[in-house]
């Protein structure tokens, strides 16, 4: 099947997203996906380091704006009373959960209150972003398939455990995918183990199979809710 390919070819976030991450302008839900990917990817970490150097150089080239002596002395006066808040990692945190997700996942993936949505798939919503994007985890049974679908908005996915494939390739732990309305895909988990993904969707998905299409009105309703 040929569709316009707007996604990154090699399982990494497109540069545009890394730039937004570095500049601090990405919606936090997208930043969450980038962060989960970065923990696994030295290539993107290195690129991010270079992008941060650009931000830093631009900041240095701004005309400095003088600060008041009062601000300086007030900050210096505070120093002795400052105590760094040490937030110890919550006990029982599973080290295989990316750091950026531990705010939502206290134990491991298996302690979560998964909701089964089909024979092969369970999901749990972690939160919503300001732009309405839904941040969730999806769990696909070994060999299980997600109904063929397209997206009304962009969807960002990071593989956290296991692996899956779709029409475009195989995605393994740490891999990042962006899919938009041009992409129709049918993700299938590999047979050896279940697959857990972080998924951020900015609009409801649109099922394209004949029978599953009948479910679309329900999906739209759950996304709006």
């Amino acid at each position: 099947m040929t569709t316009a390919n707007h996604s990154s070819p090699d399982n990494h976030p497109p540069d545009e997203l890394l730039i937004g991450y570095s500049a601090g302008s990405l919606p936090l839900s997208q930043a969450l996906c980038i962060s989960a990917h970065l923990e696994h990817c030295n290539t993107c970490q290195r690129k991010l380091q270079r992008l941060n150097l650009v931000g830093s150089a631009l900041m240095q080239q701004l005309q400095p704006s003088p600060t008041s002596a009062r601000l300086k002395s007030s900050i210096l006066d505070q120093l002795d009373n400052l105590i760094e808040e040490q937030t110890p990692p919550p006990s029982g945190t599973d080290s295989s959960v990316p750091r950026c997700l531990r705010q939502f996942i206290r134990g491991g993936y298996h302690n979560l209150n998964w909701k089964r949505v089909s024979k092969d798939i369970s999901r749990i919503e972690l939160c919503r972003d300001n732009n309405g994007a839904r941040v969730e985890l999806l769990k696909i049974r070994p060999g299980g398939a997600v109904a063929t679908h397209t997206h009304l908005g962009d969807e960002y996915t990071v593989v956290l455990e296991g692996s899956f494939s779709d029409e475009k390739g195989l995605y393994q732990r740490g891999d990042f995918l962006r899919r938009d309305h041009n992409d129709r895909h049918t993700p299938v988990a590999t047979h050896d183990r279940e697959c857990i993904c972080l998924a951020v969707s900015e609009g409801p998905i649109q099922l394209t199979g004949f029978f599953s299409r009948l479910l679309n009105p329900f999906i739209r309703r759950t996304h709006a809710g």
Partner: peptide
Amino acid sequence: TTIDPADIFNDI
């Protein structure tokens, strides 16, 4: 949103 940016940007 409830997403805490400290967890996203600080550690890596």
